[in-house]
């Protein structure tokens, strides 16, 4: 598959009064053309910061993108772009859908205007055509009666409909990459399922790459073919969805899968809790970031960072358990 986006050794820090918060500490992954990738992790693991960096939304200062980080979009390093190039790229090549649609939409402008605004910014069209495009986009995301809806304000929409409007804005100008940052966290389950179905349909229909950022492993099972698991600013495991769900290697991924009850489990299974809390990123632990909570922690885990081990094609895990000396302790 042709590569659309390559993130290479991305490091992002924020300077605060308490010290330097190292939110993202060396993240690498690829997204192919038209591919759906999920980034999964708990709050504070750096998944949203990664997404915002790809969109060029990190404010510097207080943020700082460390030297050596590279993000290649169709082969160009976007981190080296000028402000003018960024403005071209943002929205037209790559769009983002935020978690809280009510906060992301402007309450004083009609929905139609907010969509048309973006269309007019990136393409030379008349106002009337831009509004027509807005109507087409609303239909595309499944909002009934678009001719009436374009004239309405965000408060006249329900939560799920607002999120559809956000997606419509993101889809304007046919971006090649859509980033959805926890798009369903604030929604009810039935509406969540609708939005996830919509994203999946659009990805296949428009052959658009999607990065889905979430803390819920359940919702990515159906959508993403590739999954990146992050923990305290690092990628601990990545692979295809079957690699992650059926052959997960990292103790964190395994524990995460056992920490959520399954609706289709017959007997009440025991939930595995991951004791402790994620580490403080002002002073991240030496060695493996998960070592403080890991049940299989070894001496080396607390002193040296584990390297990447590759299993099947593209299934990568950072854990000392897969070092040849540790093989005796655990079956690979």
């Amino acid at each position: 598959m042709e590569k659309l986006l390559q993130v290479k050794d991305l490091k992002v820090s924020f300077h605060s009064y308490a010290g330097e918060v190292q939110s993202v500490r060396g993240v690498s992954f690829d997204v192919g053309v038209g591919e759906a990738v999920a980034i999964v992790g708990e709050s504070g693991c750096g998944k949203s910061v990664t997404a915002k960096t790809i969109m060029g939304l990190i404010q510097t200062p207080p943020g700082e993108i460390k030297a050596g980080s590279e993000i290649l979009f169709e082969g160009t390093n976007i981190l080296a772009m000028t402000e003018k190039e960024w403005a071209q790229y943002r929205g037209a090549s790559c769009s983002i859908v935020f978690q809280d649609a009510l906060a992301a939409l402007n309450p004083t402008l009609t929905v139609g205007r907010q969509i048309a605004e973006k269309v007019m910014l990136h393409t030379k069209v008349s106002k009337a055509d831009a509004y027509k495009e807005a109507e087409r986009l609303l239909t595309l995301v499944g909002i009934p009666n678009p001719a009436k809806r374009v004239k309405q304000y965000p408060h006249e929409f329900s939560g799920g409909m607002r999120q559809r409007v956000m997606i419509a804005i993101a889809l304007a100008c046919q971006p090649k990459l859509l980033i959805a940052d926890e798009p369903t966290t604030a929604l009810d389950v039935t509406i969540q399922a609708d939005i996830i179905d919509l994203l999946k349909d659009l990805q296949q229909q428009l052959n658009m790459a999607v990065i889905l950022i979430t803390h819920d492993l359940g919702i990515v099972a159906d959508v993403a073919k590739k999954i990146v698991v992050m923990y305290s600013g690092k990628v601990v495991e990545k692979g295809s969805n079957t690699d992650i769900f059926y052959r997960s290697k990292h103790p964190y991924t395994q524990a995460l899968l056992r920490a959520v009850p399954r609706l289709d489990a017959d007997e009440n299974q025991e939930l595995e809790s991951i004791e402790g809390t994620p580490p403080n990123l002002i002073a991240p632990p030496v060695g493996c970031p998960f070592s403080t909570r890991c049940k299989e922690c070894m001496n080396i885990c607390q002193t040296q960072e584990p390297p990447e081990y590759e299993f099947e094609d593209g299934h990568i895990c950072r854990c000392w358990l897969y070092h040849e000396f540790a093989q005796g302790n655990k079956e690979a």
Binding site: V189, T190, Q192, A193, I196, D216, L217, G218, I219, A221, D222, N241, T242, F245, L257, V260, R262, L263, D264
Partner: peptide, 12 residues
């Protein structure tokens, strides 16, 4: 409601 709950298993 039940059919909307995601299950962490791609095949299911």
């Amino acid at each position: 409601l039940l059919s909307a709950i995601p299950i962490p298993d791609p095949e299911v």
